[in-house]
Every structure is written in structure tokens, then in C-alpha cells.
Simulated assay, not measured.
Amino acid sequence: MLNILITGANGQLGSEMRRLGAVSPHHYVFTDVAELDITDADAVLETMRRERIDVAVNCAAYTNVERAEEDAATAEQLNCRAAENLARAAAATGATLFHISTDYVFDGQAHLPYTEEDATSPLGVYGRTKLAGEQAVAASGCKYLIFRTAWLYSQFGNNFLKTMLRLTAEREELKVVFDQVGTPTYAGDLALALFSIIEGDRYAGNEGIYHFSDEGVASWYDFAVEIASAAGHDGCRILPCRTAEFPTKAARPAYSVLDKSKVKSMFAIEIPHWRESMLYCLQKLEND
């Protein structure tokens, strides 16, 4: 039986892992900041030793892209130092670390989906600290699998899908940017991929960086239109606009489509189209 540590267990991805872990024959240890402060290296090592952890899945991150620009120190602690603490503890105990990263490590200037080998060039604090976390994990000497993902949403926490559901129900008109393109990714799909790799004992010997998002491509505008249509919020007119119309502290990648060829071939994973997963998530929100 495996002992599996999940950090950030109250977040979107962590909550999906919690749901899956409940039906596993293996022993899952779910922690968030109340149970384990991953910025405390000693606490991380002590927990991994005490629980005899075989696999740690780091779902914790500082994901507020805007706030990170003003609070770089906290973003660095959570996105880099905490990842390093987990990686060093994994190296010391022989555990394998699954670390979740982001499309924000790229600058979004490409016109073809990003592969794992493409040069990184983050635009802001969030992307820089996440890339530093990746580098710290790689330098630690531990066995690791890094999964970069993008545009996560779920029925848990705050995310674009839930915001659009609320706004399109409240408003008669809404502007959404059409010049940022990527792939909406249901956190449940990523969790299922991680779960199947762990449960199938397919991680040993397959260390490295992988990209995972749902299939297909959309702008935020496209995504908003599909959400409103599926929810029956036809009373709200959604208008496309440019990013420049909504100035933000943090620059966003204009193009962040990820190439999933590597993860699909290595682990024989079938990834659903984002629209299919969006409808599934909306159904879950309605039923839960």
C-alpha cells in the first residue's frame, strides 16, 4: 500500500484529489496550511518521515496573479521555497514528488502549442516564482514529475466558470477578452490523470516535465459564451474586447496552448475536449 501526501488539499485540484482518494485502496494524507505549513522545511521533512510518504502531490500554490505583483515575497515562499522544501524532503526519504506548475512560465508569444522543451520566459511574478519552483524541484535530486497546466476551473473555490455563471445571470451585458487564447481545463480531469498515474504505479522511471490541459483551444470570450449558453443565461449579451481595455498589474500570456503529446503517449491518457468537461462540471454544480 502506498502512502500519498496531498498538499493544498482544500484548493481546486486538491479537492478533486480528495474525492478520488476516498475510493483508493492506498492511504492518502490530505493537508492544507492548517495541517502542514509547507514553507517550514523541518515540518515537511518530519511529516514525510512520520507518514512514510511514497508519493507527494504538491497542489498548493500562490495563484492570485494580480496580488503576486504586489506581494512577491509571499508568492516566492509558496511557489518556490515550499516546492523546494517538498523536493528536498522527497530526496531525503526516497519519495517521488508530483509538482503542479503553469502555462505562465511562457511569455505567450508563440503561435503553436508549447512543448515541454520550449524556452520559458515568464512575464510576471507569478510565472517567475512558479518557474523558480520547477527549477528548485529539478535541482533537489529527488524523483519528480512536473505537470504544467492552464486555465483551471472546477466546482470548488473561485474560478472563471463560476464567476461567469454569476455575472451572466446578473447582467444584461458583459465584456470578455478575446485576444487571450488557451485551453479551459477541468481540475477533475487533471486530478484523474495524476490519480491514474499514481494508482497504476506508472511514475517510476518516467520522471520529467509534462504538459496537461484539456483538448481544444478557446479565448476567454469563447469560454464565457459557452458557459452562458449551457447555463441558459441568454439574457446577457457577451461582447468581445481586447486585453488593453482592461489594464491589469500582471501581464498575461496572449497564447498559452499546451502540447499534450508527451503525457498522452507516455501514460496512454485520453483527454476530453474542454467543452465536454465544462458541461460535466456544470452538471456537477447543479447536482451538488
Rank of each mutant, 00 (worst) to 15 (best):
220 W>P: 00
220 W>N: 11
221 Y>R: 00
221 Y>S: 05
222 D>M: 08
222 D>R: 04
223 F>L: 02
223 F>P: 06
223 F>W: 13
223 F>C: 09
224 A>K: 01
224 A>Q: 01
225 V>Y: 00
225 V>Q: 05
225 V>P: 06
226 E>A: 13
226 E>L: 04
227 I>A: 03
227 I>N: 01
228 A>Q: 02
228 A>P: 08
228 A>N: 03
229 S>Y: 06
229 S>V: 06
230 A>D: 06
234 D>N: 15
234 D>G: 15
235 G>R: 13
236 C>P: 00
236 C>M: 11
236 C>G: 10
236 C>D: 10
236 C>F: 03
237 R>G: 09
237 R>H: 14
238 I>Y: 02
239 L>N: 13
240 P>N: 07
241 C>S: 12
242 R>D: 13
242 R>W: 02
243 T>F: 00
243 T>D: 04
244 A>I: 14
245 E>R: 03
245 E>P: 00
245 E>I: 09
246 F>Y: 08
246 F>E: 08
246 F>V: 10
248 T>L: 13
248 T>G: 02
248 T>N: 05
249 K>D: 03
250 A>Q: 05
251 A>W: 01
252 R>F: 08
252 R>C: 03
252 R>Y: 09
252 R>E: 07
253 P>R: 09
254 A>C: 10
254 A>R: 15
254 A>L: 14
255 Y>R: 10
255 Y>N: 11
255 Y>S: 13
256 S>Q: 14
257 V>E: 12
257 V>K: 12
